[in-house]
Design a binder for these strands. Structure first.
Lengths: 188, 188
DNA sequence: CTACGCGATGACAGTCACTGACATCACATG
DNA sequence: CATGTGATGTCAGTGACTGTCATCGCGTAG
């Protein structure tokens, strides 16, 4: 065994989430993660740029999904409605992964460095959304602000969904949060 | 000289900004910053938690200012208007510091780790704003969403201000950005 | 079947951010 | 002039991350 077991990358991600959950992010060394995955520390860094990134392997796929949905929204849709289409597409990914999402969120919530990484992933998402909106003809600063608003809704909605006891769909929570944002910004 | 020169903390911040500008964040070691400030590496870490934090010494004061303005906004003001009052107060701090702001923004824009730190400072600001709004009687999720919206306006407004050639006031740019956000979220 | 090439992994040395422990200095106060 | 206190220096150590080279498993040309 050892060399040439398949799925090294996924094994590392699984081992990392387990160890971060068991003893905390800071108390886990990269060498321990690699060992549990049957690999060496050096190989860990060939698959992930750093100790944080191992929790964010899916962020590229999520961003692509979100952005494509915005790009392919009906031509006449308003910017905010295009963003809403992106939220729907993104929300669908998490169906049936609520427990995994919860565990991951708990690990991130417990450590500042991991929160930083999560925030920059969301910022990257926001930038990509603004780009997609501009390609739809939306001008600045409306594009950036719509993107920021969309990500804010995603963030708040996702937090409420992982925290909630009941079994509402993420997509439902997203829709409600978006309506709340509209109500709130209409208030002035 | 050496021991007991005054303002060690400020000297470190100045040396760091200079070195990060001259040769980049990654190419600068903490030992070099300390040396330029006439101190040792160990002393650097007594003043700043890490190599990034040295660029964010003023964030606590900014947050306090922003939050206090929200808390002290007129009683009957809508949540979004209370946030607007906070934006005004925050904007005032940067009057006459445009060049310094530009240099600092350039350093941060050039490095991902620094962007992460900036984002978590903004997230902290958002959380504090949501808190202040809740103390005004605003309920969730309106408080969080208003806070996120306020920070989004701050972020976009600040970027436009440092990027702009003309000499508009930051406060003016903030007001415009807020109006844009309102227009955009009303669109659906 | 064998030699060769290629991509993934291991082994090892090195840099640097960051921390704990203890000594030392400048100044205030009695 | 003695003593306490807070800021600084010194030193040793851990762990994240990188560069370099050797090694392994497997496919493929001959």
């Amino acid at each position: 065994m050892g060399r040439w077991e398949p799925n090294a990358r996924e094994r590392l991600a699984k081992a990392a989430l387990e160890l971060y959950s068991e003893r905390g992010y800071e108390q886990t060394t990269v060498a321990e993660i690699a060992k549990r995955a049957g690999l060496t520390e050096r190989t860990f860094f060939r698959h992930y740029a750093d100790k944080r990134e191992v929790l964010f392997g899916g962020s590229v796929a999520l961003q692509d999904l979100f952005v494509n949905a915005v790009a392919e929204a009906p031509g006449p849709a308003a910017p905010i409605d295009a963003a809403a289409a992106g939220l729907e597409a993104a929300a669908a990914v998490f169906d049936g992964r609520r427990e995994h999402s919860r565990q991951r969120q708990a690990v991130i919530a417990a450590n500042t460095e991991l929160q930083e990484r999560e925030l920059i992933k969301l910022a990257s998402l926001s930038a990509a959304l603004a780009d997609a909106l501009r390609r739809r003809g939306v001008t600045e600063p409306a594009a950036s602000l719509t993107a920021e608003a969309g990500v804010a809704v995603f963030k708040v909605g996702f937090e409420r969904w992982t925290a909630a006891a009941e079994e509402r769909t993420l997509s439902q929570v997203m829709r409600e949060s978006l309506e709340e944002l509209k109500a709130v910004t209409a208030g002035g």
